[in-house]
Amino acid sequence: MKLKLKIWRQEGPSSPGKFVDYDMDHVSPDMSFLEMLDVLNVGLVKKGETPVEFDHDCREGICGSCALMINGNAHGPETGTATCQLHMRRFKDGDSVIIEPWRAKAFPVIKDLATDRTAFDRIMAAGGFISTNTGNAPEANSILIGHDTAESAMDSAACIGCGACVAACKNSSAMLFVSAKVSHLAQLPQGHPERAKRVRGMVTQMDNEGFGNCSNTGACEAACPKEIKLENITRLNREMVRAVFKD
């Protein structure tokens, strides 16, 4: 099939960017979206033009590198899918496809479609851990955790840190990301000793990084490739209240 691509090109963090049109001929429905961009890039190199930069690595929806806004949808039209898992069979011959980077103040563009999401690392450093040094862990089965609690903590922990929640949110809020980590650890007994400090640290850092406030639109949940649920945000809010009363 044939496609008309409109891709955001930007040379560097401080250069202005613009859309550039590319026509793709022979796109196979079995290709992944990123393989379609690979084909575009090999063609650009043949012509001596600079290929389009985009982040990707695992190409199986787990590393959280890939991050494209496709026709206005974070990670494209399919639910529960990272960009790298999107296949061209979801598009029709003759479609126009607009491809942009995540747009958020806290995620500056590095080049073309690649952005800097290290703000997430700094939020994690502000409390997204359990303070335990190597070597002093107790026997694993001495901590009992019910099956359903473990499964629920796992569902929160499944976040891949891609930032689609931020990109999809009109306020560029990082609440879904932060709440996923807070509720993963708050649901487990090992996470309890530091729960107040953790939630305060992470939320403060989130604000300092320039992410916006959460106004409960739910756009984040809809865009999330790992289907992280809004109930995590409810849990975060509860943790915040708890933390205030602890003071």
Binding site: I130, G146, T149, E151, M154, L188, Q190, G191
Partner: peptide, 9 residues
């Protein structure tokens, strides 16, 4: 487990 890895139970 001490770090909070949610292994199956």
């Amino acid at each position: 487990v001490a770090q909070g890895v949610p292994f199956a139970r």
